[in-house]
Write a protein that binds this DNA or RNA. Structure first.
Lengths: 158, 158
DNA sequence: CGATTTGTAACTTGTGGTGTTACGTATGGC
DNA sequence: GCCATACGTAACACCACAAGTTACAAATCG
């Protein structure tokens, strides 16, 4: 995986946690995410610091969701995982001497900031409850928002 | 530089080429971009294939711009450099079995596509001539579109 | 007490743009 | 015709960083 999947993974996990009866251990979570317990703990640490989840050690311990899904947006989770860098493209030099490059930087920054604002707006607009509702509908056979079959075509794979 | 600076660099270089009297060699260009002639040729190859520039070997050879700056948008250059991946964040798994993850993917893809569309729209809206005009104004002391001083704060550096 | 589970440090791996070296090929002045 | 000039490309090293892995300490509960 060449891209940062932390936000995606945490969203996935939080919805599973909401459906679980008791605490979810890092090992259980790692299986759901097809990864490693340490990776889970490492990433969940941010969510704990943000007050989204709680962790308990020892017997019958694990991770517990502290908030209802309708009070958590994708943006909240994005912040909680440490606001990873959004873009893979950017400025060759953020502070160049060359005035031509400064002009280029201004235009590129303008475009990138607008795209970033749009992404942030979208993330802030969707609660985990809405995603969970989408899941419920998939369970009953419907495919709601947009086709999923080609979802990764431009965003994920080469 | 952990991010992809090819678009940024090519924009920078194309505007310099427009101001040059004759062809610009890869070595000259490499100095302007603070990089290596091979990197220049490698990246410029896409622009040549796209018909934006021409390359001539041998004495008095080098790179020549084939189009007026007002007929080239940032988007044209983005396409010419091979449409590099835009986002550093993405889906953990583009085609998961888990229905929860499918729902998460749908929402994330929706948000990313909207941001991508905004970026593409912005890139398509700005011609290199406009950037060159911005440069001219910087030469005469003005700083036009937006502050530049903190331009790289969210987009480029850590 | 001992099994369970989180908390972290430390190290390895994979990826992709970038940097670098080397060499082949085409061009044009002398 | 030679030869310096420049592009064209292959091959490899480098770097940053998320992810994966190993190891061990600390806390908790039956």
């Amino acid at each position: 995986m060449q891209l940062d999947g932390r936000l995606s993974r945490m969203l996935h996990l939080l919805i599973h946690m909401d459906r679980a009866k008791g605490p979810v251990t890092s090992t259980d979570a790692a299986e759901m995410l097809h990864t490693n317990p340490v990776v889970v703990r490492r990433t969940m640490a941010g969510l704990r610091d943000a007050g989204l989840v709680r962790s308990v050690k020892g017997h019958a311990g694990g991770w517990t969701l502290l908030k209802p899904l309708d009070s958590v947006t994708m943006l909240d989770v994005y912040h909680a995982v440490g606001e990873p860098r959004i873009f893979a493209i950017g400025l060759a030099d953020p502070a160049p001497d060359c005035l031509v490059e400064q002009a280029v930087n201004a235009s590129m920054t303008h475009a990138l900031k607008k795209a970033e604002a749009m992404l942030i707006a979208q993330l802030g607009d969707i609660t985990l409850a809405e995603i969970a509702r989408d899941f419920e509908q998939r369970l009953s056979g419907h495919a709601t928002q947009g086709e999923f079959s080609d979802a990764g075509s431009m965003v994920a794979s080469p």
